[in-house]
Amino acid sequence: MRRLCVALGAIALAVSAFAAEIPPSDRRSGYDFMSRETRAMQDDDTANPGMLSVLEGGTLWTRKAGGAGKACADCHGDARTSMKGVAARHPSFDAARGRPVNLEQRINACRVDRQGTPPLAYESRELLALSAYVARQSRGRPIEIAVDARTQPFLDAGRATFHRRQGQLNLSCSQCHDDQWGRSLAGNTIPQAHPTGYPIYRLEWQAVGSLQRRLRNCFVGLRAEAYEYGAPELVDLELFLMWRARGMTFEAPAVRP
């Protein structure tokens, strides 16, 4: 009897610690939690500050760089067709690295391997511009993350990070974004954490930034040690979040409060 009680208790604990994932029909983009003004800013390309980054990325796309003297366009052609849906499929498995890479890492791999030029720094203006330009080509496309035997362990690692309580405040991502979405954290509505529009223009930053920048913000809020930019743990978390948002519509460059 006692053993049964302990077992039941353990099950109850496991259930409460791993809250149910949000059912597909209840999933909402962060867009749906924004004010009418902020939504209007995102919807109007002439008002969306992220579009400046997209325009700059379009220029970089055709600019020759590095020892190979090649531009992105020399291999990939017109991004409007060749890059359609690409951002909505990242992170994706990279055979050379033996693990998933995010869009920024994919761009940098191209720079190093094909163009013969040093990688761009995370959150540098140029890398944000190129990723915003590529991401823009997926606007309106569904998020599609392919999971197979190669990617599964990384997806599982990302899921574990999402559910791991961290930092001095001892909270997991899931405790806010699965369980408390829609409620008010100091006056801000907690969204569901679907990365549908990165890189985003964030009003709080007054700048364009990557998903990893946003994730690091949350870790700082938890008073947790933030993973370094490009850390495998962050890429795995990106992979899990994109998989969690599978089927949702990509909307880069999004505007967020």
Partner: peptide
Amino acid sequence: ATIMPAYHRTEGLVRVA
């Protein structure tokens, strides 16, 4: 399973900054 942080505990925490 509470979301309330422990305000006077330092052990049993993960990756504290």
